[in-house]
Design a protein around this nucleic acid. Sequence first.
DNA 1: ACAACGGATGGAGCCGGTTCCACAGAGACG
DNA 2: CGTCTCTGTGGAACCGGCTCCATCCGTTGT
Lengths: 343, 343
Amino acid sequence: METLPSGPATINDVAARAGVGVGTVSRVLNGRTNVRPVTRAKVLDAIEALKYRPSSIARNLSLRRTHVIGVVVPFFTSHSAVERVRGVASVLGRSPYDLMLFDIEAEDRREHAFRLFDRGDRSDGLLLLSLVPPDDEVERLRAARLPCVLVDAPHPGFPSIVIDDVRGGELATKHLIELGHRLIAFVGDKPPDPFRFASSRDRTLGYERALSQAGIEARPEFVREGTQSHQVARGIAIDLLRLPQRPTAVFAASDAQALGVLEAARILGIRVPQELSVVGFDDVEVAALVGLTTVRQPLFESGRRGAELLLQLVAGGADQVVEPVVEQLPVEVVIRSTTAAPG
Amino acid sequence: METLPSGPATINDVAARAGVGVGTVSRVLNGRTNVRPVTRAKVLDAIEALKYRPSSIARNLSLRRTHVIGVVVPFFTSHSAVERVRGVASVLGRSPYDLMLFDIEAEDRREHAFRLFDRGDRSDGLLLLSLVPPDDEVERLRAARLPCVLVDAPHPGFPSIVIDDVRGGELATKHLIELGHRLIAFVGDKPPDPFRFASSRDRTLGYERALSQAGIEARPEFVREGTQSHQVARGIAIDLLRLPQRPTAVFAASDAQALGVLEAARILGIRVPQELSVVGFDDVEVAALVGLTTVRQPLFESGRRGAELLLQLVAGGADQVVEPVVEQLPVEVVIRSTTAAPG
DNA sequence: ACAACGGATGGAGCCGGTTCCACAGAGACG
DNA sequence: CGTCTCTGTGGAACCGGCTCCATCCGTTGT
């Protein structure tokens, strides 16, 4: 007497089989209390018999929410990004929200991804990692009333989780100065970064500030800029280390770049730390493995906090007033074996 | 004369404003050709004026597809998993599909995640990384006609992208034997692995086969099992290296574990490769940085191929006959600086 | 001039849930 | 014993698209 199953069972099938109305089935599904135990049992039996599972898409449409958090990240290829995503995943894992990952490698694709959220109906909230959204996108997102949190990127329109990059750069440089270095170079990102990272620029500021506080003259030829790739950093570092008067220490704006500097030193036969000190930034897992002195920023924690904050906003509903608070996580220098007093 | 915008514009609003029917708007949206240019222009104007964006949720419900690919991965904490996900992302990035990431850390949570797909309506296809689904889940997924591809895990029910783990283990061990080693230990995963990895077991098989082919007697005390964590591997390796007759070489079932072995050697003051040779497996990025000799498997490529294959299945529709083909990617030994002839 | 034909168009109905309102029936109370 | 709750329940309307069918209108053929 089974009707042949043309596709998965729907709530109507269940209602019919249990001899009740769809409203009642819905009430059972959503754990409402005002259903008679006998009725509830009938419904549960029917669900069991038909192997019924509600369609989440239909729920989405009806409830106007998706139970999805979108995570937008440029360069998923970078270790720091991965570490942050892990932090996010650790929070979402124990929430009813799923994680939609948008890896934005190219400018056009990035545009595309943002467009997706115009309507704001693909996700209930957006977490932007290391990425400052253009003002018009911010406007769109706000218009769509889509809760957003930024991690590692500030914007007056949204709450953000950041670190004090200037201070980080200052700490790193101070560490080198305290060791006795005077010839300190900097390897960072190009200013007109397509993804509008501000981090590297701020770290440069900290570097310059520390130098000036110590009364050390800044040398323009000691400040070099490339990209996050360690290959590029390696090339830059080779140039730097071939200068007539070469630096005795290098501060790199990221661990990836610091690794490139270490490679350059190895290629040129320059011993670290005896002849060259190197400080990185981020403290990715590899840093510990190769003994890199670096500025630790809580990467995992930043993702975790960002996700927590976002879930809070999402739970708060669309009509709450969101203060664009800026939450600052601590940075510290982790001294390992790539820094020492100049030889 | 604007109606006040109570929420985002819908297709009805557009139709009303353009003075046409919803069917026509839908036709314009979907690029059908049978619309008069004049009419099309009116519709496009209305869309522009109302800043209309179609609701993807409503489309999903209507079209019964989501444009989402689910990626299920245990231990997103591992480098190899991340590398595979990158491969997946690189393919999905230039497709209309979005990536939903399910990080399954705990057994119960994993169950939960699989349950989500019962209905098969959260995603149009599923990519399972390093994870053999239980038979009843396979049954469910098949019943839901949800296209699935396995990466780094075989199952007769689905196509899969794998490597020859036995051969990989054999190659690694042979490399050590050819260098002259006879006392070769193995560090791998515990057999009753909660996530049912088979890789480590197969790599053990390759190890044993290589030994027996070379006429070297297998020593049970040289085969140790722990988890993927390099801390655990470090502990195991310390035990191993304190044996009265200690091995001159260690083959670890993963780079993470090999790094643990290297740490152990450092702690015990055993020089690598002079006193101890170490071979890993995977060739994660760190391996190159620390100069680890290892068996390279194409991690990124496996994700890429898996995603390509899955998209093909998804495009093929639900009624196609899917042969559970097994695609095998090549492995090779990458010799770096942690292996040498025994001292 | 008229029938047959075919492309453009409007709109009801559907996808599968949720919600809200109307209503039935049981018990409380004057 | 009538009225007034108050709980439990059914089902229409709705979320916002897509699709198919009926209809309309302009051509073409005779």
